[in-house]
Amino acid sequence: MASVNMADVKRLRELTAAGMMDCKKALEEAEGDFDKAIEILRIKGAKDVGKREARTASNGLVAVSRPSDSLAALLELNCETDFVAKGERFQELAATVVEHIIATRPADVPTLLESQIDGKTVKELLDEANAALGEKIEIRRFALLEGGYIGTYLHKTDPQLPPTVGVLVQLDEANAEVAKDIAQHTAAMAPKYLSPNAVPADVLEKERAVFEQMTREEGKPEAALPKIVDGRINGWYRDFTLLQQAFVKDPKKTIAKVAEEAGVKVLAFVRYKVGQA
């Protein structure tokens, strides 16, 4: 096999996003022919797709599509390394899939994977990217909001990488400034629920049990437990429900108050951070 230099290996890696050793071996086998090396990597990648199923795809990006003020979709597309995440092919795949979500409005990820784009299923497109890029590529989740006025926000935690935090905020009336403010707040403060009423009963029961045990271990009087626990639950609401959080731009106001003063209601929100629940 012909010897290759690291500059050629780096160039092939930039063209394909394949691993360094895979690029080196492909160039050696192709005797320095880049087109042939790319084909070798493609064939190897296709053979290795199944082997990657157990690997962890904890990097990636969030992508958004908002064709109108009242319709938007948010997608989390995952890969194994940030090298692939910042690549053009991976980002183009995310853009294609999120636009497809808007067009077809699938009910869930399995339905999305079986739907077709130009004669190929979304799963087939992911498998092709998997083979070409040499990494496990998967759709973790997506959301679609429709109605009212929807604001969006994408945040880059690293300027060299694509966005890894994405937010949709749905208001009942159009107000671009407030929607943007609340979306940016949501990205920063990571609320889990819209309001206390939106907290599932089992979640609330678990938190209450934790606070009761904590309060007892502190030696508080038994008669005072209900009041103390209620106070801690209210504090938890202020931490984790969007409408009760203190607004980052003006902590004297809650998000509910910000919306009220603007004459709008917050109907829903979605926040994704790559690799987090």
Score class of each variant (00 low, 15 high):
130 N>I: 02
130 N>R: 04
121 T>E: 09
99 E>D: 13
104 T>C: 09
135 E>Y: 02
105 R>S: 15
123 K>W: 00
103 A>N: 13
134 G>L: 02
127 D>W: 04
120 K>S: 14
127 D>L: 04
117 I>C: 11
135 E>L: 02
130 N>A: 14
113 L>K: 14
134 G>W: 03
127 D>I: 06
135 E>D: 04
97 V>A: 07
123 K>D: 10
98 V>W: 01
117 I>Q: 08
96 T>G: 00
127 D>A: 12
114 E>C: 06
128 E>I: 12
125 L>G: 05
118 D>F: 12
102 I>R: 09
113 L>V: 10
108 D>F: 09
133 L>S: 03
129 A>M: 10
100 H>R: 05
103 A>R: 12
105 R>P: 00
124 E>N: 13
121 T>Y: 08
116 Q>I: 03
105 R>D: 08
112 L>Y: 08
122 V>C: 04
99 E>C: 00
104 T>N: 14
120 K>I: 04
103 A>K: 15
125 L>T: 05
133 L>T: 01
104 T>A: 14
102 I>N: 08
102 I>K: 07
104 T>R: 12
107 A>M: 11
100 H>A: 08
118 D>M: 09
96 T>Q: 13
122 V>R: 02
104 T>D: 07
125 L>E: 12
113 L>R: 14
104 T>H: 13
101 I>D: 00
130 N>E: 06
112 L>V: 05
109 V>F: 13
